[in-house]
Design a protein around this nucleic acid. Sequence first.
DNA 1: ATAATTGCAAAGTCTTTGCAGTTTG
DNA 2: CAAACTGCAAAGACTTTGCAATTAT
Lengths: 157, 157
Amino acid sequence: MIDPTPAHHRAPHVHDDVDQRIDAALELLREDGGRVTTARRAIVTSLYRGQDHHVTAEDVAAAVQAQHPDVHLSTVYRTLDALERLAVVAKVDLGPGPAVYHLVDHVHHHLVCDRCGTVIEVPGKVIEPLAAALEARVGFVASPHRLTISGLCRSCR
Amino acid sequence: MIDPTPAHHRAPHVHDDVDQRIDAALELLREDGGRVTTARRAIVTSLYRGQDHHVTAEDVAAAVQAQHPDVHLSTVYRTLDALERLAVVAKVDLGPGPAVYHLVDHVHHHLVCDRCGTVIEVPGKVIEPLAAALEARVGFVASPHRLTISGLCRSCR
DNA sequence: ATAATTGCAAAGTCTTTGCAGTTTG
DNA sequence: CAAACTGCAAAGACTTTGCAATTAT
């Protein structure tokens, strides 16, 4: 999803900030020995400009293809993989169906409703006490982006 | 996986108890309007007699096929589905790779190591405080069997 | 130059489904 | 007997991979 808002309708500092983060991500790819291509730039831009926190590879492909029709889904998968290795995005398996990706700087966890499939985000700090307990108890360090809890949401309860 | 220990080497009350639970599960299938077939009996037996808490459909098929070579994998999937609907087993997506199933009366959660793939089980009560917080905060009722936390285990840290 | 990336098509993994024949209640 | 279940084969959903051509550095 590309933000359709024309640049001059957005607050300038927001624009600059997002641009900076896009450039930073691309720079990481380069530092890793990778190349920055049109496809990769479009994919990264879509991730930062999209309004959806959770996107599937297919979502990204669709958004990118609006401008660059021949960016292939497999390229999206490969780029997302690279970005995951560089800790720019996190990949989350929310049960059956495609995996979703989100930027790692959006620290949160996922409550997935078994009945309606709704995904509720909860702020990362909600699980801090649990994470501390797990670390003390079993020496397991929870990733700040990969907690998934199934259950029933308020309306399906 | 079938328990290879001959019945007379096991404590009798354990044997009886497991048998009872197997019968109870089969009875649930019947009450639901289903039939109890050789395949289903073998699958349920394998779940209760297996020593592994987490089994994939393929695991179950392999175990069952040791005695009943022509029970098909698709039958295992269908039976596991039926048992899940009846809340006898829970299906858990532990990331990429096949889903794992476990009996619901074994209440626990899963810590999956991103590096080595190890699955650590933690008792269900560890997350009770978190579950209470989530319910109060967003009205989400966590399923007692479906929490998955990714991170790094003690040795991969 | 040369190593990385791309599009495409094909294969891979895990799971579901249609169907005709078999079995259960 | 009617309805449910089964094996099989085929399809489906999602993801990865091999390869020759293209492109970034």
